[in-house]
Design a protein around this nucleic acid. Sequence first.
DNA 1: GCCATAGTTCGATGGTAAGCGAAGCATGAT
DNA 2: ATCATGCTTCGCTTACCATCGAACTATGGC
Lengths: 231, 231
Amino acid sequence: MAESPNIARVAALIGDPARSGILLALMRGQALTVSELAAEAGVGLPTASSHLAQLEAGGLVAPRKQGRHKYFALASEEAAGVIEALSGFAAGLAAPKTATGPRDPALRKARVCYNHLAGDRGVQLYDSLVARGYLSVAPSGLTLSPEGWEFARGFGIGPEDFLGKRPPHCRECLDWSARRSHLGGRMGRAFLTAIESRGWAHRMRGTRTLAFTAEGERAFAAAFPHAARGG
Amino acid sequence: MAESPNIARVAALIGDPARSGILLALMRGQALTVSELAAEAGVGLPTASSHLAQLEAGGLVAPRKQGRHKYFALASEEAAGVIEALSGFAAGLAAPKTATGPRDPALRKARVCYNHLAGDRGVQLYDSLVARGYLSVAPSGLTLSPEGWEFARGFGIGPEDFLGKRPPHCRECLDWSARRSHLGGRMGRAFLTAIESRGWAHRMRGTRTLAFTAEGERAFAAAFPHAARGG
DNA sequence: GCCATAGTTCGATGGTAAGCGAAGCATGAT
DNA sequence: ATCATGCTTCGCTTACCATCGAACTATGGC
């Protein structure tokens, strides 16, 4: 009896329009101030402050004080996963008959899921790493093989980036648009950062859509070729 | 602006304690009448009726009239997935420091996720099928290979069981306790049914826990051996 | 046809919480 | 020190919605 309310509590937190607006805004991956989030959610500053306090108590967002600003971000990959799952279900509802229909083609193709690459491109990255043995999938979780680390080095990603951070660095994240797993965790973030810093793609302002440039598209396809389909 | 409310609406539906109680009860996999659900949720019959109407409008549950009874079940795998994701997050919150701790050992080991096998045993089944090439994982989804169909035949599962049902029969479902995928969809249901009908395991009354018998444990391990870890 | 059971609809009630303005801290700039 | 900015707290109003009793409909059994 005392267990069930937990899920109700979390869902109720997300269930308010203002709070879900805040969470969706944070899904873009960057931390935002209370004022910015108030504007995003379309409510007054005191209201947003109250909502954020509740979300923090619920473990969905985490604050980071910086000077006289207070930045909020999603608290964890898990929190992002919950929002992602709800988004997927809600999107499916909107177009129930248009199965696998291009509800928002750009969003399905490539988007930011909290802090890593999702959508078709995200799945492609994941599959490509797995197919080449760079990423090994085990019941205990995902791990980068030695060859994988070597490959990552080519993107400026090395073990030194993960010093002091406790594993797992690689996380599996279920993608609603492709219905397949993609790479999350700190490693997923590192790859997204690399992709952005090379100018292959950039986040579209105010959205979760990731826009690839023409050369970026080509470079990405070369770096992460589609995995051969085993039959 | 008009997109965000969708997720809020769904979350708000789940956010009510009575409704989440109903949904959790339905996660056990069997359809229940309005009266039964009212009792499960601890509310009066009229209240339950009202809640169920809302859940139905929200696409979370689906009714099935049978005589003067009205049975409700979860509307889809996707709906079950959302509840599962929320359960996982809520469970993680309760024991934030006890990472991967045995919050409920039996539940982590084997449980029913809507209509298929989840938990460690569910992951084992999935991994075992994949490792032997019976289940092939592709970006487009999961499919049973010819050898897989042959293997399934040994469990009394044949293509004839899926006549008239439109694909996909196999669905990937993310497991919160093991953080790995397991087999859902009609195929997942078929395997669970086979396991139960052979007496290897049975659902514990009123819970989602699946209790394996001693011989069932052995038979399951023989039929779905742990996949060799590639390294 | 009649009663019993299952479920729905209606109306009234009450609790909960979102929202905002105003006042109160806290931090940074001048 | 003084002011400005960013955020929080307080008090209040308002709106929503869960809940239940009672009346109503539908289905089945006799």
